[in-house]
Simulated scan of single mutants.
Amino acid sequence: MEKSIFLALDFPTWQETKDFLNFHELYGVPVKVGMELFYREGPKVIESLKANNHPIFLDLKLHDIPTTVMRAMRNLSSLGVDIVNVHALGGSEMIKRAKEGLSGGQFDTKLIAVTVLTSMDTETLNVELMIPGNTEDVAVHFADFAKRNGADGVVCSVHESMQIKEKCGMDFLTVTPGIRLEDSSRDDQKRIASPSYAVENGADFLVIGRSVTKAKHPREAYERALKECGVK
C-alpha cells in the first residue's frame, strides 16, 4: 500500500456511514472501521466498503489469550481488509499467534500492534497501569517485540514514529492516529499532531477522524489533510 490517510468512520450504523461518504463524495478513500461500527453491522460493512473500493483498516484491537486471538484472526483473514490490529499489551505469544491466524489466507492483510493509546500519557502508564518509563520508551519497546514476533508495524503516536523507525527499520509500518488539522479541537486525545508533522516524523499511514467528519465541509477538510502531508 502507498502512504495514505485513513478516515475514521466513527458512526453507529452503516446507513449513517454510507450517507456521509456519498453526500460528501468521499468515494474510495481509505477508511478505518472501529469497534462501534463493526460490532453493530458485522462483516457486511466491510463487504459494502470493499465493493466501493475503499482500502480498509479494521481497528478492533484484539487482546485475549493467544489461541482465541489466533482463531479470531483466522476468521477475520477472509474479509480481505488491508490492515488489522491487536494490542501489544497482549504479549509476544499473542502477537505471534495473531500472525499465524492471518497467514495462509488469500489476502495480504498487514498485522499491526497498538503500542500506547494516544489518549494515554506517562502518568497514566506509571500510576494507573504501573508500567515504568515514559510513553516514548514504552512505545518503542512494544514495537520492538511486536516486530520480533511477526507484526508488520504498529499503531503509535506521531511523536514516537521516528524512534520506532530507527529501532525497527524504515520498512516497519507506523500508523498514527491523533491527527488534527490546525484549527481542530483536541477532543479526548492527549498526544496529537498535524498531518505535515506526522509525515515529517516518519508516519506511513495517518488516521484522521473528527477533523474531517465534524468539519463544515468534510471533503475539503480531507483534501486539505492530503495536501498538508503531500499524499496524492
Rank of each mutant, 00 (worst) to 15 (best):
S4T: 10
N85Y: 10
Y39W: 15
T115C: 05
E223G: 13
Y222I: 02
L181E: 10
V127T: 14
R224S: 03
G153Q: 13
M70K: 03
R186Q: 08
N53L: 09
A225F: 08
L60Q: 09
I5S: 06
M120T: 00
K18D: 09
S211G: 14
S196L: 04
E160H: 10
I179R: 02
S194M: 07
F11S: 05
F142R: 13
H217N: 15
V155D: 03
D152Q: 09
N53S: 13
Y197R: 11
L9E: 04
I131P: 08
N52H: 07
F11W: 06
G42M: 07
A139N: 11
D10Y: 09
K216S: 14
I131R: 08
D188E: 00
N134H: 15
T122L: 07
V207I: 04
I95R: 06
V207N: 00
V81R: 07
A139C: 12
I131E: 05
L76S: 00
A51Q: 14
K32G: 09
A113K: 11
L206V: 06
S185D: 10
L181S: 09
V45F: 09
I164M: 02
S184G: 05
H87Y: 14
K44S: 13
F11L: 08
V69Y: 00
H24R: 09
V29D: 01
V140W: 04
V29Y: 01
E136H: 13
G34N: 02
D64H: 13
L9C: 10
V114I: 11
L102C: 07
K3C: 01
S103M: 10
V212L: 10
